[in-house]
Write a protein that binds this DNA or RNA. Structure first.
Lengths: 191, 191
DNA sequence: CAGATTGTCTAGCACTGCTAGAATCGGAGC
DNA sequence: GCTCCGATTCTAGCAGTGCTAGACAATCTG
């Protein structure tokens, strides 16, 4: 009885090790460097052990992505609650979102470019994921005016996502980032 | 002398064959199915021939991407010139952009997700690429108001790109696509 | 027709994600 | 304390990837 709980504890500890090793490696050298062999060496086990925890490499990346969504949600919440009024809140949230993507490129990649099999706009989406969206919505709700908040949030989120995505792949002039962000916020800040 | 021109002609014909085979394969089965071996078989040559035309698989994908940018530019131009006023032009361009991404997912992928090493916001960017951007700008210029057109175009383009990207990876509710597009156009259509 | 040069192919490298079957380790019963 | 059994972990290998060196064949030149 006691041995079983211990083993389960050790097992879940190892699972966390896998996820954090994947994340660390990805943030240090990019996702291309995250191979199952490197990962196995990092946790000091052999390759097949990974597959007793996750269905495959994609599932590991999805786990990293969920971690990222949780952190994004708290970052957005902090930015929103720290702001004075609705307009400042929207600007702060946008700023925080862009800073998150810029500061953790590999993590953002796992969340939006790589893991495609995470359930998103459905009730069975991971909680961390719905939390992040809820934060955005809370920031937009006061400024919705005649627009449906859900729809407005989706659109604003898309715009933000597009900005940081094109930004990072070098498709936009690097130095005007702040001004584009401000422009976007202005366009969505007036009901 | 004449033989040399003939060989050069044949050579460039084969190069076009490679690019169009890559595109066809990608659109039919996705980029994962486009392997150098499949590609070689498709053009009925051996694998190393590909490398006498392109530096690697990435360069082939980049060539496909440039093709895509040219087609996107003409699609946007058609939509813009067919519209009555500035507002209708913006809506039409946005519609055409979304339709392009939706109808040619693999092509859009090559343009924005895969080929990262194309020069973008610089003078030495491919002409097709600058043309597409110029079309967007032409649609936005009349509605810029106090905003700098260049900046506004970049921001609107990003927003569009984000919409179609999240849309396609199943991160947005599928059926509200049109309404989100309309919302975006409304937010950018009023100076 | 011989020789040099181009072009193309065969074979192989180092790597990927993933898995079958062998080996090893831990706890249970005598 | 010792054997046995089951779960766990490992070694070895598969089929595939992008890419390349060196052997081969075809072509043009003198």
């Amino acid at each position: 009885m006691s041995t079983r709980t211990r083993r389960e504890r050790e097992r879940s500890a190892r699972e966390r090790m896998i996820v954090s090793a994947a994340r660390r490696l990805a943030e240090a050298e990019g996702w291309d460097a995250v191979t199952t062999r490197r990962l196995a060496a990092e946790i000091e086990y052999s390759q097949p052990v990974l597959y007793s925890h996750f269905a495959g490499k994609d599932a590991i990346m999805a786990a990293v992505a969920v971690e990222g969504f949780a952190e994004l949600a708290t970052a957005l919440r902090a930015a929103r609650t720290a702001a004075a009024g609705p307009r400042a809140a929207l600007a702060g949230v946008a700023q925080a979102y862009a800073a998150f993507a810029d500061g953790r490129p590999a993590l953002y990649d796992a969340m939006f470019t790589q893991a495609v099999d995470l359930p998103f706009a459905t009730p069975d989406a991971p909680a961390a994921l719905r939390d992040g969206f809820a934060e955005l919505r809370a920031a937009l709700q006061p400024l919705a005016g005649a627009d449906e908040p859900e729809l407005l949030t989706e659109t604003f989120w898309s715009a933000l996502h597009g900005l940081v995505g094109l930004q990072r792949s070098g498709r936009l002039r690097r130095d005007d980032h702040e001004r584009r962000l401000a422009l976007l916020v202005a366009r969505f800040g007036d009901p």
